[in-house]
Computed example of a mutant assay.
Amino acid sequence: MSEWFETTDGILSKVWGTLGRGVADVKHPARRPTFATVSPDGWPEARTVVLRSIDPTVAVVTVHTDLYSDKIKSLQAQPRAALHIWDAKQDLQIRLQAEVSISSGAQTRALWDKIPDHAQQSYGVTPAPGTPIKTALEYVKDPDPATFAVLQCTVTTIDAVHLGADHRRVSFSRLGHWQGQWLSP
């Protein structure tokens, strides 16, 4: 019997399983991927987000954000992002490229109502995220469903690297119907 990292199908299954664990387990490394965009003036931006849901059948992952965050401005200018996860226990690096759509307002109200009060504190800050302030705590958290946004990330490519005794790297693409292509690591 082969190990998961010895076949492209095994790696693809492990990638989606790892992402699923990130949604379900608050302590799993896939819970907080690095989310990268390009600013409207062309600079790379990376920040940590919380993975909220995945659907491998349509290759979609979602994260939540404040509608007034810098990542929204970046995504409005260029609706693409990359997500990066490092799972040290599995020696697995996952990189996703995705096309991103932004939902807010009435589209997200039912979801907002399901978010616990302590988590709602992340959406609705005055002044808006990124605004200069004089002292570190010169802001007010005022949860507001009007500032809550869901980023639906439709995965277009997956690049997975297993750094075991033998390094293995494989690429998958939506256009290629998720057939794995081995790459030199």
Results as ranks from 00 to 15, higher is better:
residue 3 E to C: 14
residue 4 W to M: 08
residue 42 G to W: 01
residue 94 I to V: 06
residue 9 D to G: 10
residue 17 G to L: 08
residue 179 Q to A: 15
residue 84 H to Y: 14
residue 26 V to D: 14
residue 134 K to M: 13
residue 117 D to F: 11
residue 160 A to S: 05
residue 48 T to S: 10
residue 39 S to R: 06
residue 70 D to W: 05
residue 55 D to F: 07
residue 26 V to H: 13
residue 63 V to D: 02
residue 46 A to F: 02
residue 127 P to L: 03
residue 106 A to L: 13
residue 182 W to Q: 09
residue 127 P to H: 04
residue 59 A to W: 05
residue 124 G to R: 01
residue 135 T to V: 05
residue 7 T to K: 04
residue 71 K to H: 05
residue 106 A to V: 12
residue 150 V to R: 01
residue 78 Q to W: 14
residue 154 T to I: 12
residue 116 P to C: 05
residue 11 I to W: 06
residue 7 T to V: 06
residue 133 I to P: 01
residue 175 L to F: 13
residue 57 T to I: 09
residue 48 T to K: 00
residue 34 T to S: 15
residue 177 H to D: 15
residue 56 P to T: 02
residue 38 V to L: 00
residue 119 A to T: 10
residue 64 H to P: 09
residue 74 S to T: 02
residue 63 V to G: 04
residue 65 T to K: 01
residue 120 Q to Y: 00
residue 97 Q to V: 15
residue 2 S to G: 12
residue 97 Q to P: 09
residue 62 T to I: 03
residue 85 I to E: 05
residue 183 L to T: 04
residue 134 K to F: 13
residue 92 L to Y: 07
residue 177 H to C: 14
residue 36 A to H: 00
residue 184 S to D: 14
residue 57 T to L: 12
residue 88 A to Q: 14
residue 20 G to N: 04
residue 30 A to D: 07
residue 99 E to Q: 13
residue 70 D to P: 11
residue 165 A to L: 14
residue 35 F to C: 03
residue 141 K to A: 13
residue 23 V to L: 09
residue 1 M to K: 15
residue 54 I to P: 01
residue 13 S to T: 12
residue 93 Q to Y: 06
residue 128 A to G: 05
residue 57 T to M: 12
residue 73 K to V: 11
residue 121 Q to S: 11
residue 169 R to A: 08
residue 76 Q to H: 10
residue 24 A to H: 06
residue 79 P to N: 01
residue 159 D to S: 08
residue 54 I to V: 15
